[in-house]
Design a binder for these strands. Structure first.
Length: 576
DNA sequence: CTTAGGG
DNA sequence: CCCTAAG
């Protein structure tokens, strides 16, 4: 496929004037030093250069990648505000811009003002048409709003953002084309001619500066990205281009490939939407400006051909941000498909299946309190994430190969998981509900804090019993023995709970000694007998540091414990 | 990985 | 409940 593309693309693209691949700095400058980049972007200096570069970029891509013969109306709409408004003479204007003349400053600002108007138009048009844009739309539009509201920086930002927004509004442009009379082929041709007239010297002089600006632009784009798809994309192309500084062929192939993918995909899913949107500004211009069917005729006749290119290129590890976000997406999207549920509960189920009956018997033997912890209403949890994000995940279901594979795996494994759940539910409703509860709490979190699940008295009793059996500190064993069914209680949780119980037992004693009235409130629904037991266990199995001193001061003698306990508690001597 | 301990 | 260091 890549060879195919390499053979086909140069025939259709005429890239004479430019010796240096303009996207190399764009792609190579990526995840290594985002902080510095951000800092750089924060400096309000380069606006004029960026303005110039914006137009330069446009012209570059147009000239470089397409021998402009059949430019669709989208191109005209995109370029028109920049080229035709404010300056009647496109040729002269562009020429000056390319030369980096001082006049370009003023004109650049004019261009920017019109661009802003255009961006606002795009925003409103976007809102009007409500086209399917994927998850990044809002953020981009938000950027637009921010730019228009902050005059201090909006010039620079909007300049660097125009292409982004054009990408976001791509469908908008298309819609506009359907019912507007903005087609302006003259401007395009003039631009094209201007490039042809440019001398080799000028282009070569521009290259260094232009590359710098292009890098800025690209990095800006980089930071605008909401998900990692385009990062992957960029990485791929980066790998492709590293060390090949003048590989226009590869450039063309890699940059046009997603376009073709998008086009060939009949039901354009969010996946490809995102891909196209996440392209660099230059790519987007190409995407929008080119007559894509024409591209398709050049030996790209199926998605299966374009697919290997992607997988072949994906060799660099995605950035951390991408990993987190993709995990977020996958967890959200696969939540309903047992994605995380499977992951978290697989071992649990396997383990439970073998030992569940046995431990359950032990539980019942151990239970001293009635089954208050059926977890009936306790497990109904409201998801943290917004419903909007769910929609995104739906659209981006297969927006990465990795994600797609994950989803597939989850779907494949899901039936087994469900079978397990059903089989277990026949055994014990409580435990399954706990597992589901736990799975939900993890699946939706996406790395966030686990939902707080209050310890039920029976759980406390189980913990106490486990401590009495295994001793303090053997939390894994206790967990395995008594909490194997409740996967949301980890050994660390047991440890923490035990620590809290010790504190509670201490403080409660002190409180009880002082005020008899506040006892119920202070106990926090933990029966006093349990606390007594905790205290005694703390004596028998001293907690490494804190329990010894604390308990020793307040813990009564064993004789007092036996006297104070009700008969529901098994005497400690039997347990130990 | 498990535990202890601080936050 | 989270995080991390230590073993």
């Amino acid at each position: 496929m890549s060879k195919l593309a390499s053979d086909a693309i140069p025939n259709m693209f005429t890239c004479k004037p430019y010796k240096v691949d303009p996207d190399i700095p764009f792609f190579t400058a990526s995840e290594d030093e985002p902080g510095g980049i951000e800092h750089f972007l924060g400096e309000p200096e380069c606006k004029d250069d960026l303005v110039n570069n914006l137009l330069d970029l446009d012209m570059f891509q147009i000239q470089k990648c397409f021998d402009v013969e059949d430019i669709s109306g989208t191109f005209d709409d995109t370029m028109r505000p920049n080229l035709t408004q404010g300056e009647g003479e496109n040729l002269e204007f562009l020429y000056e811009m390319f030369q980096g003349s001082n006049n370009g400053d003023v004109r650049g600002q004019n261009t920017l003002s019109t661009s802003e108007e255009f961006l606002l138009d795009a925003k409103y048009a976007d809102d009007t048409f409500k086209l399917d844009h994927g998850p990044c739309k809002d953020s981009y539009l938000g950027n637009v709003a921010l730019q228009t509201q902050s005059p201090g920086i909006h010039k620079r930002d909007s300049a660097s953002e125009i292409l982004d927004l054009s990408s976001v509004g791509d469908p908008v442009f298309k819609c506009m084309n359907n019912h507007s009379s903005l087609h302006d082929h003259i401007a395009v041709e003039e631009v094209n001619e201007a490039f042809k007239n440019m001398s080799e010297y000028e282009t070569s002089v521009m290259d260094s500066k232009w590359l710098q600006q292009h890098e800025i632009f690209g990095l800006k784009n980089y930071f605008e990205m909401e998900n990692g798809l385009s990062l992957m994309k960029f990485d791929l192309t980066t790998i492709e281009h590293e060390g090949k500084t003048s590989s226009n062929i590869d450039y063309a192939a890699s940059t046009t490939e997603p376009v073709i993918r998008t086009l060939n995909n009949e039901n354009i899913s969010g996946n490809h939407q995102v891909k196209r949107k996440r392209l660099t500004g230059s790519e987007l211009l190409k995407t929008m400006n080119s007559d894509v069917r024409k591209v398709e005729l050049f030996s790209f006749d199926g998605e299966d051909k374009a697919e290997p290119l992607v997988t072949q290129k994906r060799s660099r590890k995605p950035p951390r941000r991408y990993i987190e976000e993709s995990l977020d997406y996958s967890s959200k999207s696969s939540n309903r498909k047992c994605g995380m549920a499977y992951r978290r509960s697989k071992d649990q189920f396997l383990h439970v299946k073998s030992q569940k009956q046995k431990w359950q018997n032990e539980f019942q033997a151990v239970q001293v309190f009635p089954q208050e912890d059926s977890f009936d209403g306790n497990c109904i949890q409201v998801p943290f994430d917004l419903p909007m994000e769910r929609e995104h995940s739906k659209k981006n279901e297969s927006f990465l190969v990795k994600d797609a594979e994950d989803c597939k795996d989850n779907r494949l494994l899901c039936p087994v998981d469900k079978l397990d759940v059903e089989a277990l539910s026949a055994e014990s409703q409580e435990d399954v509900s706990e597992d589901e509860c736990m799975a939900r709490s993890y699946a939706k979190g996406g790395g966030r804090r686990k939902r707080h699940i209050s310890w039920t008295p029976s759980e406390v009793v189980k913990l106490v019993e486990g401590v009495s059996q295994c001793g303090v500190g053997r939390w894994t064993e206790i967990k395995r023995l008594l909490f194997s069914s409740s996967s949301h209680r980890t050994s660390v949780d047991l440890k923490d709970k035990w620590r809290n119980l010790l504190r509670a037992s201490c403080t409660q004693l002190q409180i009880k000694e002082k005020v008899e009235n506040g006892r119920k409130q202070a106990t926090n629904h933990i029966p006093e007998s349990v606390l007594w037991r905790v205290r005694e266990l703390a004596i028998m199995h001293p907690y490494p540091r804190e329990s010894r001193s604390k308990v020793s001061c307040t813990a009564p003698a064993v004789s007092s414990f036996t006297a104070a306990t009700d008969n529901t508690l098994v005497p400690l001597s039997t347990a130990v």
